[in-house]
Amino acid sequence: MKYAYPVTLLCLLLCFSCRPKKTPAKTDAAAVRELPPELHTDLYGNWVGDFISISGEEPDYEDVARINIRLTRITAEGVEGRSVVKGNDRPMKGALTVTGNKYAFVMDEPGSDRHDGRFEFFIMGDTLKGRWKAYKATEVKNPVKEFTLVKKPFRYNANLMLPEDWEYVDYENGRMQTELYTNEDGTVDTSINKVYRAASEEVYKLNGSASELTEKQLKNLKKLDLEIIRNTIFARHGYSFKSKGVRQFFDQVDWYVPVTNNIDGALTGMEQKNVALLQRFEKYAQDNYDSFGR
């Protein structure tokens, strides 16, 4: 019995030595080193400007939206980015060709949405210029767009306001109004005119991101006033609006950069409270319609 322990110990040592050795897990640092190096990072960021429909070969300036082409990763293996326009936030991938100081890109959206397509553009200096073509040209109203963009940083700023020298008229949602008028000879004729609703000066005075709004401030406002004040809160967070009726008030604002179609969790507590109050007043507010020149 006195030899049992050495024999047992020898068997255990042999068993452990025969076990297959585990390959040590790669460290995060090693995994990072295996990624291809990023190139031309100075091109990263938001490239923002007008997304203009092409009718035939001519630009259709009645159909314009603000687009953001955001470049997020460039390597020798390819390019990644996103397109944000008209409430759509789509990933895209492609390739880059560099010739001198010209960077030419071909970028494809996934194709799972009927509004997806191919972007072909180039960057020279501080300008990005190109065209987009829909994959499903027969399923969209305007299958070809062109754009000339400049780089714009996005920073949330609660104090951003709409320009004071603009005319805030809802030209996208006019309606026909019939009016009767009496001629000099006493006969009565009918006049049919298109009329629109207009906002008051309160849209560039009340800030729902910087201070808590009160019922007293809102109770006499027009419905359009309330809508614009509420949507300005969303615009400060870079929300991309789908409705042209809303986009008409923000697409030409210099500070507005559409970066996302989802701002869940982005609003401050005060902004959430103000949005709820504005929506409550919108339900019962009215608008005055009048004739305006464009």
Score class of each variant (00 low, 15 high):
residue 231 N to T: 06
residue 251 D to I: 04
residue 61 Y to K: 10
residue 217 Q to C: 11
residue 183 N to M: 07
residue 86 K to W: 12
residue 250 F to L: 08
residue 35 L to P: 04
residue 47 W to G: 02
residue 170 D to W: 06
residue 245 G to A: 09
residue 110 P to W: 05
residue 204 Y to V: 00
residue 281 F to P: 09
residue 170 D to F: 10
residue 83 S to F: 00
residue 24 P to F: 09
residue 162 L to E: 03
residue 186 G to V: 06
residue 220 N to A: 12
residue 99 T to V: 12
residue 147 F to I: 09
residue 81 G to F: 00
residue 224 L to H: 07
residue 224 L to G: 05
residue 261 N to R: 03
residue 18 C to H: 12
residue 290 D to N: 13
residue 158 A to W: 04
residue 165 D to F: 03
residue 168 Y to P: 00
residue 132 W to S: 11
residue 165 D to P: 02
residue 151 K to R: 10
residue 61 Y to Q: 09
residue 281 F to E: 15
residue 291 S to L: 11
residue 90 R to H: 09
residue 11 C to D: 05
residue 122 F to N: 14
residue 223 K to F: 02
residue 183 N to G: 08
residue 170 D to T: 07
residue 176 M to H: 02
residue 92 M to I: 01
residue 270 M to A: 06
residue 216 K to Y: 11
residue 200 S to D: 01
residue 158 A to P: 10
residue 272 Q to R: 14
residue 262 N to Q: 11
residue 119 F to N: 06
residue 221 L to G: 04
residue 137 A to P: 08
residue 30 A to T: 06
residue 42 D to P: 00
residue 239 Y to C: 05
residue 147 F to H: 10
residue 5 Y to V: 14
residue 182 T to I: 05
residue 96 L to A: 07
residue 54 I to T: 09
residue 223 K to E: 09
residue 90 R to N: 12
residue 149 L to M: 06
residue 286 Q to L: 09
residue 158 A to E: 15
